[in-house]
Design a protein around this nucleic acid. Structure first.
Length: 559
RNA sequence: GGGCUUGUAACUCAGUCUGGAUAGAGUGCUAACCUUCUAAGCUAGAAGUCGCAGGUUCAAAUCCUGCCAAGCCCGCCA
């Protein structure tokens, strides 16, 4: 429809001797704030500087040149101040949009951007030392949605989870003899031991000794590291699986232990590697674009006892990842922004490209009226498991109240995911359990409820596959819903380009809201234009269903 | 001290990339609406120095500069 508007505008503007390209016209065309102002608007401000006339006069002149228009395409073309407002044939538009959706169904919005290219996405990668808290889960939820969006756009994603099994954190748990503990008990142990290590030089020395033994092949020590890691990874895997988040590969950091020679000699060749007085190996980042972000522009790669630090192994891991797929993605917390840039610069110095990175901000917790960062070490956290249990309990309570039977778990998980996904990635989330348990308004349950409503209407219809769509009139609520449905493909594309699922989350809410308004204003079953309204409800169900799929939220037919 | 991010209604956010018509939602608050396709809903109302100050522009929440506040990061954690 937009094309037609551009074409007739181009013709009129040519006649008035404005030299302007079609692409430019298309760029200037905007969608008016409300539909009673039309469906497209062309602002004439910018033309007034060219011919020194006020924009309103220009708008009137252009409108005259547009003359009589095809009533098949347009209902009306009006001027309003400096704007020319195009009212397209809305009934035709509505029929077209609905037909298109009912034809493509769950493929509506799909485009072949991925071209079946292999993509590698590394995400979650939580320290294997405890049950994940809500903050850490933000990574997994965002990333999982991105994976779904990329799959929808014909990428072939492969999901990797990097297990930091060579860490001081695990060493501390080894010191605390945690190897036979259950996953649920790990957190308490971890908090206790990290407090101890923090306050004791001797304990800290023991921790580093354990790392040294692990790195130098002590089988007994490495066995303990592996046992603790296994317990934790399995526990984390399980809870994330509850959210419907799965991984194709678990890559272990320990794989890269003692394999430092190759990378170090490559870095040596850049002449940026040096040893400091404590014999630590350090990479000099002076001269890189990020040098002014550090007090001293370096990154330390080994301890003085010769054991490797995390960045050294991360370099090896990243190099491996880059070999696997053409498209590479990593999802990291905002605290890793500089760190990731450092890795990127080191790799750049040996001509290796790095993954695209998605950063997200922290989830803060309310404590004594203040927002605080969640800290596993200090125990200031809301565990995902606890939160999930609460939410599911609440969902069940609501279901009992209504005496309906539905999947409380799906409602709960959907609520959690939506609460995370609706926020822009780099916005800090202030996590408030009470508010997170509210199921009214801009929430996951509201969206699921709208979906269930649509389904409930369709279930009552005997013959929903009436091919002929008849329409007598088009209510405002129907028009608004149709227009929102029609932009779904753009939303998906934008969400992919910005690697930002919140665009789809917000769209889902707005779409649901418009559906609920339609629901109240326009009865379907008793309507004289039943066929159109049924088709519209079906179209809504497809598009909202697609959105929910991309967010990783399970649909439910009843609630 | 430096870098990045954020600052929009009492609270939580959308809109900022790509400048345009009266700045939008939700929660909470005030009033209505369930013998009618699900009231986890709908309608109406009150509520805003778009952090502050300059600048660019016919036009700034949106672009530029400076400042303020919060969060994160800046040498042997990962």
């Amino acid at each position: 429809m937009k094309t037609e508007v551009v074409i007739i505008l181009k013709k009129a503007l040519d006649e008035l001797n404005f030299e302007i390209k079609e692409e430019e016209i298309s760029k200037f065309l905007e969608i008016p704030p409300t539909s009673d102002m039309g469906d497209y608007a062309f602002p004439c401000f910018f033309l007034s500087s060219r011919i020194k006339k006020n924009p309103h006069e220009i708008a009137v002149e252009i409108r005259e040149k547009l003359g009589n228009f095809s009533t098949e395409l347009f209902e009306d073309i009006q001027t309003s101040g400096p704007y020319i407002n195009f009212f397209i044939n809305r009934k035709e538009l509505a029929k077209n949009v609905v037909n298109q959706i009912l034809t493509s169904k769950d493929k509506f919005g799909k485009t072949d951007i991925g071209k079946r290219k292999k993509a590698l996405i590394e995400h979650t990668s939580i320290n294997p030392n405890a049950s994940p808290h809500v903050g850490r889960t933000r990574n997994a939820i965002i990333a999982d949605s991105i994976v779904r969006i990329m799959t929808f756009l014909n990428f072939k994603p492969e999901v990797h989870y990097y297990v930091n099994d060579v860490s001081k954190q695990i060493a501390m748990l080894v010191l605390a003899k945690a190897e036979n503990l259950k996953f649920e008990s790990m957190l308490k142990k971890y908090i206790a031991i990290s407090t101890k290590v923090k306050n004791s030089k001797k304990a800290e020395k023991q921790v580093f000794d354990l790392l040294y033994e692990f790195e130098n092949g002590n089988k007994k020590v490495s066995g303990k590291f592996k046992k603790i890691t296994k317990t934790c990874v399995n526990g984390q895997k399980k809870i994330l699986a509850e959210l419907g988040i799965h991984y194709d590969f678990f890559d272990y950091e320990s794989k890269y232990l003692r394999n430092y020679k190759g990378i170090l000699s490559k870095l040596e060749a850049t002449k940026k590697l040096f040893k400091d007085k404590d014999k630590r190996i350090i990479f000099n980042l002076k001269g890189t674009p990020i040098e002014n972000q550090m007090k001293s522009p370096v990154i330390v790669l080994t301890r003085s006892d010769g054991t490797g630090l995390y960045p050294l192994r991360d370099l090896l891991y990243t190099i491996d990842k880059m070999k696997i797929a053409e498209k590479n993605l990593i999802v990291l917390g905002e605290d890793q922004k500089l760190y990731f840039q450092q890795i990127k610069q080191i790799l750049n110095s040996i001509n290796i490209t790095s993954p695209e990175v998605v950063h997200y901000s922290f989830v803060l917790i309310q404590k004594k009226g203040k927002s605080k960062k969640m800290s596993t070490r200090k125990g200031d956290i809301v565990l995902l498991k606890d939160f999930l249990d609460e939410v599911i309990k609440k969902a069940q309570k609501e279901l009992d109240k209504r005496k309906t039977k539905a999947d409380a778990k799906k409602i709960g998980v959907g609520a959690v995911k939506y609460a995370i996904l609706k926020n822009n990635n780099n916005k800090i989330i202030n996590f408030d359990l009470e508010k997170a348990l509210n199921f009214e308004g801009d929430t996951g349950p509201y969206i699921l409820y709208s979906y269930a409503r649509a389904n409930s209407i369709l279930k009552k219809i005997k013959n929903p596959k009436n091919k002929k769509i008849e329409m007598l009139s088009l209510e405002k609520q129907e028009l608004d819903l149709v227009k929102k449905l029609s932009i779904f493909p753009d939303i998906v594309l934008n969400s992919y380009k910005n690697l930002n699922p919140s665009l789809i989350a917000n769209y889902s809410y707005q779409l649901s809201k418009l559906f609920n308004e339609f629901y109240h204003a326009c009865p379907v079953i008793k309507s004289e234009q039943k066929s159109f309204r049924i088709a519209l409800v079906q179209a809504f169900k497809h598009v909202l269903g697609n959105s929910l799929n991309l967010l990783g939220i399970d649909k439910i037919d009843r609630m």
